[in-house]
Amino acid sequence: MNNPTIRNWLGFSTLALMLVSLFMVFDYVPPDAEMGIAQLIFYFHVPLAWVAFASFGLVAIAGIFYLWLGDQLWDDLGYAAAETGMVFCTLVIVTGSIWAKPIWGTWWTWDSRLTMTFILWLMYGGYLMLRASADDTPQVARFGAVIGIVAAMDVPIVIVSVRMWRTIHPAVLVTKQGTHGLEDPRMVWTLLVSLTAFTLLWAWFLMLRFTQLRTRSRMAWLAGRIALATAVASDPK
């Protein structure tokens, strides 16, 4: 994971695929017949949502492994995933709002998927606030792990409850008829390319942040060792 060569390759392939995906979205794919150009944001919105939810899943998985194995590596991974996920989750809400204004006539509405995404955003905002308000001790790492697990456990119930509450969000990928709503094969290709591009971008961000946090943990560990060695050396006995 800490290999700079892999990281650079990941960065460059993200850039290349991102350019391809931009070209496909703005030049290749036909816009939706009814919604027109506003629909194009779909090709960013859906991949962003996918990586945001994947990050939050990763926070919970890393939390479980941290509580189980107690290796600092898992906490660094979970923390990096929470921060990355927060960025993408914010972008999901922003791109969704930009789309909703011309189509629904409002920036925000309490639809079930919007509500669910916003609640997720609040949960992981709380996670990050907790991490920000405390030093990076093993204790706080355990707190983070517990909150990551509890929040992920909550997601299915949140989905069921907000769906019963109200829903108007378009179901594109799996419609009520059981098919997908992308009638043109070019739409499918564009979506697949931008999904891959955003997944690579996410992996790259995650790797960068994870490497930073690993370095920081290692430095904290070294500082502890140095303090211990100094104390031993200066002890007259």
Partner: peptide, 30 residues
């Protein structure tokens, strides 16, 4: 569960609602 966490961090009293309310949302709606 969460107050055992927030009670041992700085500004814990303020953090508790921020952590509890979003997670409690499904039960609150219901």
């Amino acid at each position: 569960l969460l107050s055992a966490i927030t009670g041992r961090t700085r500004g814990g009293d303020m953090l508790l609602p921020i952590l509890v309310v979003p997670i409690f949302v499904p039960a609150l709606i219901a």
